[in-house]
C-alpha cells in the first residue's frame, strides 16, 4: 500500500504558556527562535502509515509544506522513523496560510508524486486546529475521506477503519484511494528511531519543490477564509469562600458548581 503522509511543522505546542506570542502584523503566532516540532497528530498519522507498510508492503512518502530552511528536522525525523522518501514544498509564506489555501498545493504535489492508495493527515494541527485538511484534499483528489480515525486494517485491497465520533466508535469500510485524518491511539504512539535508522535517513531521497513547480500561483493569501483578529484568552482567578458548617458549605458548593454547569 503506497501512502503519502502530510506533515506540518508547528511551534512546539508544549512551550510554556507565557512564551506564546502573537505577531500583530501577520495575526499569527511568533515563530522566531521557538523550537519547531511535527504537529502531534501528524506524527501519529506517520506511525499508522509505517505500521500499514509493515503489514502490507508498499512505500511511505512524507510530504511537507513550509519554509524550506525550517523543515529539515521534521523531514529527517520522518525519514528516520521509516518513511522511504520525502517531498518538501518550499513556501516561506506557509505559516500564514490556512488549510483551504494549502490543500490545493498539497493536492498538486500528491498528483505529481503520482501513485498512491492512501493519504494520511493529522486530524487537526496543533496550532490552528482547523480540522479541514483531509476533506479539502479528498475533494481535490477525488478520493474517499474518513476523518478522526484511530485504527486502520487492510482487507482485500480495501481498508477497515475505526472512526471516533461523539457517540463512540464507528467501523467504516473504505475503498481506496482514500484520505484519512488520524487522531490518537495507544497502538500508534510514534516510534523512537534507532540510531542506525537515523544514519540511514541521511541517505534517503528528499525532493525539494516550489509552489511554482506545482503551478500553484500565489493568490495572495485567503481563499474564502480570512483571519480578522486573534487574541490570547485572558485567564482570571477568583477566590470565593463559602461560609458555614461543613455540611452547609458542601451544600453551597454543590449549588455553586451546578450554577457554573460543572456538575
Amino acid at each position: 500500500m503506497d501512502t503519502i503522509v502530510c506533515l506540518k511543522q508547528v511551534v512546539d505546542p508544549e512551550l510554556p504558556q507565557w512564551d506564546f506570542a502573537i505577531d500583530p502584523a501577520t495575526k499569527r503566532q511568533v515563530r522566531m527562535g521557538k523550537p519547531l516540532v511535527i504537529s502531534t497528530y501528524d506524527e501519529n498519522a506517520l506511525e499508522l502509515a509505517l505500521q500499514l507498510k509493515e503489514k502490507t508492503g508498499g512505500k511511505v512518502t512524507a510530504l511537507t509544506l513550509g519554509p524550506q530552511g525550517e523543515v529539515k528536522d521534521a523531514v529527517r525525523l520522518a525519514l528516520a522513523m521509516g518513511a522511504d522518501e520525502a517531498v518538501v514544498i518550499d513556501d516561506p509564506q506557509s505559516p500564514q496560510r490556512l488549510a483551504a489555501d494549502k490543500a490545493s498545493v498539497l493536492a498538486a504535489a500528491i498528483k505529481r508524486i503520482g501513485r498512491f492508495d492512501l493519504v494520511l493527515t493529522g486530524c487537526e494541527s496543533a496550532d490552528w486546529v482547523e480540522r479541514a485538511m483531509a476533506p479539502f484534499l479528498a475533494e481535490a483528489l477525488g478520493a474517499a475521506c474518513v476523518t478522526f480515525i484511530s485504527r486502520a486494517e487492510s482487507r482485500d485491497g480495501a481498508l477497515s477503519v475505526r472512526r471516533t465520533s461523539e457517540e463512540g466508535f464507528q467501523t467504516v469500510d473504505v475503498r481506496l484511494p482514500a484520505v484519512l485524518s488520524v487522531t490518537s491511539d495507544e497502538a500508534i504512539r510514534p516510534r523512537l528511531p534507532k540510531v542506525k535508522d537515523i544514519m540511514a535517513a541521511m541517505r534517503k531521497p528528499v525532493a525539494n519543490w516550489t509552489r511554482a513547480d506545482l503551478g500553484a500561483e500565489d493568490a495572495g493569501g485567503a481563499k474564502g477564509v480570512e483571519v480578522k483578529d486573534v487574541s490570547i484568552p485572558e485567564r482570571t482567578t477568583k477566590v470565593e469562600f463559602l461560609e458555614g458548617e461543613p455540611a452547609e458549605q458542601a451544600e453551597a458548593l454543590v449549588a455553586r458548581l451546578r450554577a457554573l454547569k460543572i456538575l
Binding site: 512546539d12 508544549e14 512551550l15 510554556p16 504558556q17 507565557w18 523550537p35 516540532v37
Partner: peptide, 13 residues
C-alpha cells in the same frame, strides 16, 4: 532533541 532540554512540559522558559 526538540526543545534542547529534557524537561517536557516545563512551565517556564
Amino acid at each position: 532533541e526538540a526543545r534542547g532540554h529534557p524537561f517536557r512540559g516545563a512551565a517556564v522558559t
